[in-house]
Amino acid sequence: MDFISILSIFVLACFVGYYVVWSVTPALHTPLMAVTNAISSVIIVGALVASAAAGSPLAKFLGLGAVVLASVNIFGGFAVTQRMLAMYKKKEKK
């Protein structure tokens, strides 16, 4: 992919993010932070490439370290978001 198409994806995604996030209700801003934190750990993709590739023991070591860190975030982030969201309840109808 050339730089311009990557840049296009990035800029469009910024706009999508802008509109989607404004529609998030303020009551859910804490879960929003927790879940964005979990999905930004998609950086694990890069960590996996580094730890899988042959050629550089240093890169592999760094990659595995990043895999551990990103996994803490992915599992922790989604689990804590789920825990929080499960608490939001409506008034019981009488």
């Binding site: 999508v16 964005t36 950086i43 890069g46």
Partner: peptide, 16 residues
Amino acid sequence: AMIVTGALVGSSGAIL
């Protein structure tokens, strides 16, 4: 996936 996610999270934090 990383670019889209990064842009989403980046704008989300900026809006907050």
